[in-house]
Simulated scan of single mutants.
Amino acid sequence: MKTDKPLLEIIGVDKHFGNQHVLKNCTLSVKQGETVVLIGPSGSGKSTLLRCVNLLESIEGGSIFFRQSDITQSNVEPHRLRQDIGMVFQNYELFSHLTAAENIMLAPMTVLGINRAEAEAQALELLSKVRIPDKADSFPDELSGGQQQRVAIARALAMKPKLMLFDEPTSALDPEMIREVVDVMADLSAEGMTSIVVTHEMGFARRAANHIVFMENGEIIEHATRDEFFGGSVSQRAQRFLDQILH
Rank of each mutant, 00 (worst) to 15 (best):
38 L>D: 03
191 E>G: 01
223 H>W: 02
71 I>H: 15
181 V>H: 07
198 V>L: 12
117 A>M: 02
91 N>Y: 15
108 P>R: 05
73 Q>W: 02
54 N>G: 08
134 D>W: 02
146 G>F: 04
54 N>P: 05
148 Q>I: 04
168 E>P: 05
133 P>D: 12
168 E>T: 04
208 A>G: 07
148 Q>V: 01
40 G>S: 07
201 E>F: 06
63 S>T: 01
182 V>S: 15
46 K>P: 13
231 G>D: 00
115 N>M: 01
33 G>M: 09
201 E>I: 04
37 V>A: 07
137 D>C: 04
102 E>D: 09
182 V>K: 05
189 S>F: 01
137 D>F: 05
86 G>A: 13
4 D>V: 11
72 T>H: 13
176 E>I: 00
53 V>W: 07
145 G>K: 08
202 M>P: 10
187 D>C: 00
30 V>D: 11
92 Y>N: 15
126 L>F: 06
111 V>L: 07
151 V>K: 08
144 S>N: 07
16 H>I: 00
204 F>E: 00
100 A>T: 09
205 A>M: 01
111 V>R: 01
58 S>E: 14
60 E>P: 02
71 I>S: 14
8 L>K: 11
3 T>S: 14
20 Q>K: 14
74 S>Q: 14
161 P>R: 10
159 M>L: 15
180 E>V: 03
99 T>C: 07
60 E>C: 02
117 A>C: 10
68 Q>K: 08
6 P>Y: 13
232 G>N: 05
12 G>I: 00
81 L>H: 05
104 I>S: 15
168 E>F: 11
191 E>I: 01
95 F>C: 05
67 R>Q: 11
81 L>K: 08
137 D>Y: 06
26 C>L: 15
142 E>D: 05
219 E>D: 13
26 C>I: 15
56 L>A: 10
238 A>F: 03
9 E>W: 13
228 E>W: 05
3 T>P: 09
60 E>M: 02
30 V>M: 11
38 L>V: 02
126 L>K: 08
204 F>P: 04
5 K>M: 04
24 K>L: 09
106 L>D: 09
76 V>A: 01
82 R>W: 06
123 A>R: 01
186 A>T: 10
147 Q>S: 04
192 G>I: 05
71 I>V: 12
177 M>T: 03
48 T>E: 12
236 Q>M: 12
139 F>E: 08
164 M>P: 03
150 R>L: 11
12 G>W: 10
219 E>M: 11
176 E>H: 09
56 L>R: 14
146 G>P: 06
125 E>T: 12
208 A>I: 01
122 Q>H: 09
68 Q>W: 02
6 P>W: 14
123 A>D: 02
88 V>T: 06
35 T>N: 12
188 L>A: 12
246 L>R: 10
28 L>R: 09
244 Q>S: 09
230 F>D: 10
111 V>I: 02
214 F>S: 06
223 H>T: 08
231 G>Q: 05
33 G>S: 02
11 I>G: 03
148 Q>M: 14
207 R>W: 01
97 H>T: 06
145 G>N: 00
238 A>P: 07
157 L>W: 08
187 D>R: 03
227 D>K: 03
72 T>G: 11
114 I>L: 13
245 I>W: 10
94 L>W: 07
220 I>K: 08
16 H>K: 13
62 G>Y: 06
